Amino acid sequence: MENDAMLTTSPSTLENKPTGLKLFFTRLVQQRMLVLMSIPFVIWLIIFKYVPIWGWTIAFQDYQPGLKFSEQKWVGFKHFKILFTDETFSEQFLRAVRNTLAMSGINLILGFVTAITLALLLNEVKKMAFKRVVQTVSYLPHFISWVVAAGIIQTTLAPDGIINELLKWIGVIDKGQEYLFLGKAEWFWGIFGASSVWKDIGWNAIVYLAAISSIDPAQYEAAEMDGAGRLRRMWSITLPGIKPVIIVLLIMNIGYLMESGFEPQYLLGNGMNVDYSENIDIFVLKYGLQQFNFPLATAAGMFKTVVSFILLFAANNVAKRMGQDRLF
């Protein structure tokens, strides 16, 4: 009888639940403190991220700084065509796109592999004092600005720097000789990748360590009782446990493939390695601010943003089709 009563009353209870806009405003009132806390961030987002989108109109104009908006000459996709077809600009722009994708890909692969590996290894460390020291040392470079980091890298890789001295000491090069690391254009991508790993490996590993801490310890105990070693526990328990976090971060990072950075390329780049160090951001700076070609620079920046959106949605859709965790 009690079960029958529950069955008869449950439909009316469901009907009384708010839906649609009523449910939205109900939750808004319930979570009003979170909404109030998010208002400053929303204001910042609108002012610094959405309002500047108005400047994209410059890409479709022969923009003249002294003229009003209504007096500008509209030229359609002229500047986009120049980026890809003009002999003067297309070669440099396509080279910048190549460098951007190459450095982003290197950073993506190395960043994921090294951060996950460090998190797995730290999870196996039993001495907490040693674990804390390693964590502190590994994520400390993240808080160093790229200006300081670039100075350290340049000093380390200088002809009289520690790397050349070490190579002489182990006999790789003869005394009186040295490598000009930042003078070899084809070496720049590797230097950038190694520098990014050194600077961000500890910081990136924090997310995976947090995900590992949520795994039920009983799974490790059961696997150990079954005779599974450390490598087997890593492969069968830890990696599957953090798989959703890995996939979500991978999707987000694929959306940033057109964002290889600005500071390291600008600070470590020079005339000898410009063919491999100049990315889209530096291309925009060079033609937008240094040569005052605002429409061309805006078109290049707009192209980068549109491609980033396409990559993000494509990666999310692939994850959805594969039945994996996704952003939306």
Rank of each mutant, 00 (worst) to 15 (best):
N3V: 11
F24T: 04
P217F: 01
K286M: 04
K131F: 15
G241K: 02
Y139S: 03
I242L: 09
T57P: 01
L67F: 03
I280M: 06
V318M: 13
F48M: 11
A223T: 01
D226R: 11
F309I: 14
I242Q: 11
V137C: 14
S38T: 08
E221C: 05
W44C: 15
Q219N: 07
W54E: 08
Q177T: 12
I39H: 10
A210M: 03
G20Q: 05
G55P: 08
T155R: 09
N317W: 10
I163P: 00
M258C: 11
R27Y: 02
I247M: 15
S90A: 15
W189M: 01
S10E: 12
F143L: 04
W169A: 10
D226F: 03
L120Q: 04
V29F: 12
G288F: 06
K49A: 13
G255W: 10
K199H: 10
I39P: 09
L121V: 13
L296N: 00
I153P: 05
K304M: 11
Y287E: 01
N279S: 05
L249P: 12
N16E: 11
A149T: 03
L249W: 10
L180C: 04
R98D: 00
L94K: 14
N16K: 15
S104H: 02
T88N: 15
Q177L: 09
S214L: 08
F80T: 07
G161E: 04
D4I: 12
M302L: 14
P18W: 07
F130P: 10
G105I: 01
N164V: 01
R326T: 06
K243W: 14
Q31Y: 08
K68H: 12
D226C: 09
L268A: 11
V125P: 03
F89I: 15
S236G: 06
V284D: 02
T100Y: 03
S213A: 13
P40S: 11
L250K: 08
L167V: 01
P65V: 05
L180Q: 09
T136Y: 14
S10A: 11
A5N: 10
E124D: 04
F41E: 02
Y63C: 02
F41N: 09
V307A: 11
E165Y: 08
I46N: 06
L285A: 12
D62G: 01
K131V: 11
G171K: 12
L94E: 06
K78N: 13
M234L: 13
E178D: 12
I153Y: 00
A211S: 07
F143H: 02
N253I: 08
D275T: 03
G171M: 10
M1H: 14
F93M: 15
I212F: 02
E165T: 01
I212S: 01
R95V: 03
Q31G: 06
W56P: 13
Q31P: 02
Q92Y: 10
F262V: 02
S145A: 02
I153A: 03
V197P: 00
I162M: 07
P240C: 07
G55F: 01
M322D: 03
